[in-house]
Amino acid sequence: MSDSPRPRSIRRYGWAILIGVLAVVGILLAVADISAGNRWPNPMAQAIVGPATTSHPASAQTQTFRFDRSRVGDRLIFDFPIGGLGPLSPYQALRAFLTNGAGLVLLALAALVVFPARARSAVERLEARHGSEIALGAGLVIVMLTLAAVTLLRFTLLFLAVVPLVLLVALVAGLFGIACISLALGRLLHRRLRLPNVHPLIAALAGALVVFDLAVIPYAGVFTLAAVAMAGIGLAVVTRFGSAGGWSFVDLDW
């Protein structure tokens, strides 16, 4: 039986629709996150969506507006219709999407463009049986290992300078891992929603938007993002940044 013309044409634009929906969901969740942040302040969430919004923004005398000359955001703040929660600030939510969301997407895509073979190898291992559980478990262990090692290094003077290097490696591993998880999520959406074949970077873009959406869920978002970042670090380490050979000590045993 052949598909009717309408579903086929909708399917053709499936990726564009999906990306649009994910972007709108991300902005709406950011609005909710900002609004909820006023009632139960969540300092960690402020790193993602910005500071909690007030109905009466600070006066111009106390702030400089070199980067926000139009100050449209101050006029686009609405009181929440149901009592208790903070004001709604769609403009700040859009700003969060265009800064943190775009940053996440760009870094993820850049990692995939620079290391395509390694990303593929890592994603294949993530998609294998128990791949995600192993990545998350390894991420948890690495966080403990890094904290213990950094604390140990803090009590030395000689190796103190190594600490920024350790943190830099952890940051790079996390970014590479999140990029691979984004690609894996995009591939999952492709399979589950039976979307047409598309360039892998488009799939990764959709996956990165899913990660952003998870990160702006009110209150739970910070923990979700932490879990994704940990799984990303774990994936990067257990696959040795997606190297085909993986970890091996054969060369030391001669």
Binding site: R125, H130, V141, L145, V238
Partner: peptide, 26 residues
């Protein structure tokens, strides 16, 4: 305590690496 945590975590990581599925041929 810090050295013990580092050692156990490193050993734990080596087990998780062994459990990780191997890469498929390109």
């Amino acid at each position: 305590a810090l050295i013990a945590l580092t050692a156990i975590a490193a050993y734990h990581l080596s087990i998780l690496i062994e459990l990780t599925p191997k890469a498929l041929p390109t």
